[in-house]
Design a protein around this nucleic acid. Structure first.
Lengths: 338, 338
DNA sequence: TCCTGGCACTCTTCGCATGCGAGTGCCAGC
DNA sequence: GCTGGCACTCGCATGCGAAGAGTGCCAGGA
């Protein structure tokens, strides 16, 4: 077990390194933090921390930098979440309050988060699977062509085209629309399949094919996982990384474009609260030298999607976590109101 | 006026520079292209080209690189559009054919264009202002709350919430829905305002406020310019630029996030055909060392939106133009079919 | 037992001088 | 108007040495 002072040394190293972006030495440490001991003592502590794998030196006779393990300890034990200041909170609220629709909420959230953290922001669209159905609309575009529009309680709208096997009368359509809505409106997506199971039985034989097809399209839309979209912003902040970074920025940009990777990453964070993944804890190669801070957000008590930030492992964790948490909270409020 | 051979020299310089990314000298030129003259002669030609501002040397005793003016001449006079090969065309078609809805078409187009050109691709969503209305749907979510859903002929769906001044009966809603659709379905957006002008008169006095409000929301949605969205992809290709590029990639990423800038840029290209803007021809600082190749696309004869590519001024213009044109053509077909 | 000052050692970084090579510009000759 | 030759200019890589930062270790003291 590490002594109290060694933990303080580690904390100081992380803070200084995040601030200066340069390996930090024993002398500088004692000057900037009053640890009450001499550089030599700190050197001993550092040596111990290095043996335990919390810090490392890029090359002999350079200062130390934290390892992923070091950051992990820092995040778990040594640092809290820095709360937003009152003006910041007001700014967040003002900025988000202007949103006109769901797309706009997401777009504004991304911009906001990127600006606050000066890093890359990622916001997942409210997921379908946890939401409830607000309304299902059916429109006859042609005698044998129906457009299915699904509206969720989070304001999301999905549409699908259905090519019917047989012409489908306006009356049947109205009937189906009414029956469908009375059964599923307000219900959770997960419950829908069972609720509509026997619906085709209520129709004339000639219409059943079409009804089944509409229903299966609806169910497809509900489960369609790759329809989980997300919005990314603040990629320009990647250039703030290092000086070495042609090498490091590239795979990150590539990973960001592969939304699948990000969705998987967000999905893996089981913790309903905040999750921080650091460096090699992220399976995906190319994000190995980045950290991801993510948290669920949602209207009401339950999280419907995630949002977060991607940045260098050398990031201001307390500040980033504070911003992410605050933004998630306000977005939840906005969604609950609309 | 430049002699034929000098134009050939310019063409050779552009081609070599695009290929090698290094300033090209007189000796290398004569070796790689059989111009039929000696390096000394080429040097004289280069000197003349430099005096006219078509090429420049980064520093004394280095080869020449084309200036923006040089690229302009190259694009206008010296190079054609390189057609896609048959396999490439098949690949484009296959890739786009799998799309399920409008979002998917746009997403696939961006990916495709980025891959083909190995540059940053930009695709504007089919613009509302030039489309026609397919259907307007009204849903009562609460006694005094109506959701307006607008469906366009390009498959785009816009929704807006309307808070009514007074409760609005289901019958009135159905009436309004029917009247509205009979008037505007199939009509161009630009014509809608006049078509619905007198619609409130047909309703009871108590409902007129709500009807007016629904209509004005509809009109707002139609003209809302900042709802012109676009999708961007292939930003990782920016890293292929130079070695110097922490400086150059940053403003480009920033400009790309400012979608306003890109929309303005795409909007400025009046030419219905392909437009190429090179370097300083682009007003926006930060895109000064990039070129933009854009073209309109659309279902049927008319362009409904633009798509294009952003890359370094040092790009393969013929190839890029070929890819952009081909993709635009196929996207148009896809939209016409759906 | 733990902290401290001192000291030698290591390694990176920076500045500077040098040599090389690519490329140019110009000129005289064909 | 083209060509070969030649001197000149720079940028770039290389090598060397000094400076500086930081470490590790050790002996001495609380």
């Amino acid at each position: 077990m590490l002594s109290e002072r060694r933990l303080q040394v580690l904390r100081a190293i992380v803070q200084d390194y995040v601030g200066t972006e340069e390996p930090v030495g024993s002398k500088a440490l004692t000057e900037r933090h009053n640890l009450g001991v001499s550089p030599a003592t700190v050197r001993n502590d550092m040596s111990a921390l290095e043996d335990d794998g919390y810090i490392a030196q890029p090359h002999t006779s350079a200062g130390r930098i934290p390892t992923d393990k070091g950051y992990r300890l820092f995040v778990d034990k040594l640092a809290g979440v820095k709360p937003m200041t009152a003006p910041e909170r007001r700014a967040i609220q003002n900025f988000l309050d202007g949103a006109v629709d769901l797309d706009d909420v997401v777009a504004r959230t991304v911009r906001l988060l990127a600006q606050l953290t000066r890093q890359v922001a990622v916001v997942q669209y409210p997921s379908l699977t946890r939401s409830t159905v607000r309304h299902v609309e059916l429109l006859a575009l042609a005698p044998a062509r129906v457009m299915l529009v699904l509206i969720t309680d989070t304001g999301r709208v999905e549409q699908r085209m259905v090519d019917c096997p047989a012409p489908f009368g306006e009356a049947s359509l109205a009937d189906l629309r009414a029956r469908l809505n009375s059964r599923v409106a307000g219900r959770r997506f997960a419950d829908v399949p069972k609720l509509v199971e026997d619906l085709p039985d209520a129709f004339e034989h000639e219409d059943r094919g079409t009804v089944s097809m509409v229903l299966s399209t609806l169910l497809e839309t509900l489960v369609e996982e790759n329809e989980e979209r997300l919005m990314i912003g603040g990629t320009a902040n990647l250039t703030r990384f290092g000086h070495d970074f042609p090498l490091t920025i590239r795979p990150v940009l590539e990973a960001l474009e592969e939304q699948v990777v990000l969705l998987k990453l967000l999905g893996e964070a089981k913790d309903p609260g905040m999750t921080v993944r650091i460096g090699h804890e992220i399976a995906h190669e190319g994000l190995n030298s980045t950290s991801v801070v993510s948290v669920g957000y949602g209207s009401g008590g339950e999280a419907v999607a995630k949002l977060g930030v991607v940045g260098p492992t050398r990031m201001d964790y307390p500040g980033t976590m504070g911003a992410v948490r605050a933004v998630a909270r306000y977005v939840g409020q906005i969604l609950a109101e609309s």
